[in-house]
Design a binder for these strands. Structure first.
Length: 351
DNA sequence: AAGGCGGGGCT
DNA sequence: AGCCCAGCCTT
């Protein structure tokens, strides 16, 4: 079958005319491309860009990033979410700096072995930095291809993943993979958008299957997502006369691994102050404080913090005590990496 | 093969 | 409030 180079020609024409001027488009240094690609996983450019600027300024080389503490990296990552990306980023930086003399692997296969680098990211780096003819398939590519060819296979099914990867490989312009890959993703992000795509001015308007079938908005097809779990978190904000408080780091599995938060009592449902007092007395948090404490509720109605897979109904209980043993000064709270939920509380509550 | 992992934007 | 976005890792 003859390769359809006309698709590439139209696509790259569009890209050269409409592409955004983004900082990582002025380099092919694998360190910067890797950094941008990790940050842009599940993240839009508008959200990731400030972080990219902060990281490239703070860590101009992979050696700078490798030398930083994980705590500092997490602090700089704070608010970007999916914090395993930051932990893997740091681990890979240390590996590349210390074991590989600062040199990233120079092909798809090698890149794929790096922690936090999967099929998409390895393809992106290999094509952009080394012009290796490997096809990227991200959310944008799924959308463009499913519409252009009118494919209704669910993109998050095993069959769909294989099908779209094969399709992207077939379509890839092997003479200019860097340009082609960036063009198809930019086209999906800016023109063939999920909502309100610009079909009226689309360069593929006479060949797009979905447009011919008036099926654009129902593509791509996706399998049902997971159910959302409700959780009830009761944060205990200890506050001593000399303005100390207590925080702890989240360890083990679950959300916000490595980040800090106030001591927390999780319950099955929303609880009253009476119920809280009872649970607090029974908890080990009350063990090392004086019996004379005063409890007040910061937020009368629960603060709802939504993650993609769970909704957190949160109450902040202010517990004033005379003295606190293993506490930190409240003015140091700003130095710790914390979830957005906690960061917002710190802004709203005047210590 | 399925589920866990953030946070933001839109309606 | 509920909807959408979406790559990698673990189980």
């Amino acid at each position: 079958m003859q390769k359809d180079l006309n698709f590439s020609k139209i696509l790259i024409n569009w890209y050269l005319k409409y592409k955004r001027d983004l900082p990582w488009r002025h380099t092919t240094d694998p360190y910067f491309i890797w950094l941008s690609e990790i940050m842009l996983q599940q993240t839009q450019v508008a959200q990731g860009l400030p972080y990219y600027l902060k990281f490239t300024e703070t860590y101009p080389t992979v050696f700078h990033l490798a030398k930083a503490s994980q705590e500092e990296v997490l602090k700089n990552w704070q608010g970007l979410g999916y914090y395993s990306r930051a932990r893997n980023l740091h681990e890979t930086a240390k590996y590349v700096a210390n074991e590989r003399d600062g040199k990233f692997p120079e092909d798809y296969k090698g890149l794929l072995r790096l922690k936090g680098v999967g099929d998409y990211t390895a393809s992106a780096i290999a094509s952009i930095c080394y012009n290796e003819p490997v096809a990227v398939v991200d959310g944008n590519v799924y959308r463009v291809l499913s519409r252009y060819f009118g494919i209704e296979t669910p993109i998050n099914s095993t069959k769909g993943i294989k099908e779209f990867k094969a399709m992207a490989e077939l379509l890839l312009d092997e003479n200019q993979p860097a340009l082609f890959n960036q063009a198809i993703m930019e086209f999906g992000a800016r023109h063939c958008k999920p909502k309100n795509p610009f079909c009226d001015t689309c360069p593929f308007s006479d060949s797009c299957k979905a447009l011919q079938d008036d099926n654009v908005l129902s593509l791509p097809v996706k399998l049902k997502k997971t159910t959302i779990k409700k959780r009830y978190l009761n944060y205990i904000v200890l506050l001593s006369d000399n303005e100390n408080t207590q925080i702890k780091q989240r360890v083990g599995k679950g959300i916000w691994q490595g980040l800090y938060e106030f001591p927390c009592i999780e319950t099955k449902k929303d609880i009253s102050e009476t119920e809280f007092l009872s649970l607090f007395k029974a908890s080990d948090i009350s063990n090392d404080i004086n019996e004379n404490y005063n409890v007040s509720l910061f937020n009368d109605a629960s603060i709802v913090h939504k993650l993609s897979h769970q909704h957190l109904y949160t109450k902040f209980w202010i517990v004033r005590v005379s003295t606190l043993n293993d506490g930190i000064p409240t003015h140091q709270l700003k130095d710790y990496p914390v979830p957005v939920l906690i960061a917002r509380f710190l802004e709203d509550f005047s210590f």
